[in-house]
């Protein structure tokens, strides 16, 4: 049984990519299994945990729900794309500095979502951050240090705009 493959082209973390994917393949599987981008995590596959969060054209999506073919022609940013030549992105650095990372498995999604919230609202309050991160589950941290990290970035307004302009 050969499934039909479609050729797609998109920008991944600022670099052009083209590949053939089956119509049924999800973006998460494409990133992890086809492109070796394992930073984005699978933890539920049903849009319920946020571990697979990536940005498409400036909006966060659960990559486990989105079909890979729908990436065609779009700008895709994953956790690997946040790092700047100078080092960690300010949001990543804040998570490290505030002890927000324990097992770290939820963190790629948590950081992608946090960065997006901060970019869209530089004056993000703690309550807004809590609501904005409702879809990102973490079993280790109790979210407190995650919110501390987000607060710290909001206070210094160091997040910047689009993830990969």
């Amino acid at each position: 049984m050969m499934s039909v493959e479609t050729e797609i082209r998109f920008s991944l973390n600022g670099r052009p990519v083209s590949l053939k994917v089956p119509a049924t393949m999800k973006t998460l599987a494409m990133l992890r299994d086809r492109l070796g981008m394992t930073g984005t995590k699978y933890a539920c596959g049903e849009g319920e945990c946020g571990a697979c969060t990536i940005e498409i054209d400036g909006k966060t999506v659960n990559s486990c729900l989105m079909y890979a073919v729908d990436c065609d022609g779009r700008e895709v940013v994953t956790i690997e794309g946040l790092r700047t030549p100078e080092g960690l992105h300010p949001v990543q650095q804040a998570f490290v500095d505030h002890g927000a990372v324990q097992c770290g498995f939820c963190m790629p999604g948590m950081i992608m979502q946090s960065r997006n919230l901060l970019a869209n609202n530089p004056e993000l309050t703690r309550e807004q951050a809590q609501r904005g991160l409702e879809g990102n589950l973490c079993r280790c941290t109790g979210y407190t240090k995650v919110l501390d990290a987000v607060d710290a970035v909001a206070a210094t307004n160091t997040c910047g705009g689009r993830a990969n302009p």
């Binding site: 394992t38 930073g39 960690l88 990543q92 490290v96 990372v101 324990q102 498995f105 963190m107």
Partner: peptide, 20 residues
């Protein structure tokens, strides 16, 4: 307050978990 040494790799998606 000391940072977890493995936090930078985990925060950047570099850490290779068993799942990966």
């Amino acid at each position: 307050r000391v940072k977890k040494p493995d936090a930078p790799d985990k925060a950047t998606g570099k850490t290779r978990y068993i799942n990966d």
